[in-house]
Design a protein around this nucleic acid. Structure first.
Lengths: 149, 149
DNA sequence: ATTTACTATACTATATCCGTCTACTTAGTA
DNA sequence: TACTAAGTAGACGGATATAGTATAGTAAAT
């Protein structure tokens, strides 16, 4: 697995919407500013997320984006697979985006990659964006305390 | 972490040299054929490996490449870091190739990435190419048995 | 008419791969 | 010994594809 800007931005966007779309629609510009993401690149990423059914949108004044699913129904792993293709360290051991290689039975590296793949999936498929909201809150409280001291 | 062709080829090359350089020098062409790697790309990768001190070479007839270190002294992790830059899922948690990001203390994804980083390093930094040679032999024996049946 | 999402396109950097030429080393030959 | 030929690594430029990023304009809702 490798998280590129695309994936990083997508994850931050889903988290931003998880936190803010309770209040109503969220404009691209707001997300871009809060998450420090290039606006025009974010547009493309939001279209990808929309096409995959994670977000919905409304045009015109007072328009914007909102989550199409509950945060608890979206995992970090799904978003990585959507944006990066797969979570595995290499595509020949990927389940979601498998690419065949020559001599799999004799490849001595393969067991390494499958072990790493399983460990990664064990993390990213268990964490939902409801969990991420909690983590975010905790971190912010912790940080405010630090500032007060 | 993501293993690109470059890293995949480099790992296969070091393993090939670990197995074959006991007999003497190994020509690029042999490695390219055995490991199914584009010859010209392999040249570049061997230069990289040479620059980093993993292999040495000799020109002219009966020339070729050989390992500059013992297989037991080279880990899979080192080769990945050399060819891919880092083993982490994202550079902001990399130890070897760290790139700072905005608000690390408040980033709720960071704990995920550090967990994954540590798990990956726990695998790749423990496996040497002496281990890989063993794995390779075992897999080949196993496969011969399968063919006999 | 204004505000917003949406689409299409273009640019840049990197990864991958290929072709050609150069430098070095050895073996053979006169 | 001197020279030649052949085999090998090494260096350089470039072709191609993809990822990432940015630009310009279009469509829809109010």
């Amino acid at each position: 697995m490798r998280i590129s800007f695309k994936g990083d931005y997508a994850l931050k966007t889903i988290l931003d919407l998880s936190v803010n779309s309770k209040k109503g629609l969220v404009r691209i510009g707001e997300i871009a500013k809060r998450q420090d993401v290039p606006l025009k690149y974010l547009e493309q990423i939001l279209l990808l997320l929309k096409g995959a059914g994670y977000v919905s949108s409304k045009r015109g004044p007072a328009g914007g984006y909102y989550l199409a699913k509950k945060p608890s129904e979206i995992t970090v792993g799904e978003i990585i697979r959507l944006t990066e293709g797969y979570t595995s360290p290499i595509s020949c051991v990927s389940k979601s985006c498998y690419v065949k290689c020559n001599d799999e039975l004799r490849c001595p590296f393969r067991p390494l990659w499958t072990d790493i793949r399983d460990m990664i999936n064990d993390v990213v498929d268990k964490v939902t964006f409801a969990d991420m909201c909690e983590r975010k809150e905790k971190l912010e409280k912790k940080n405010i305390v630090n500032y007060e001291i």
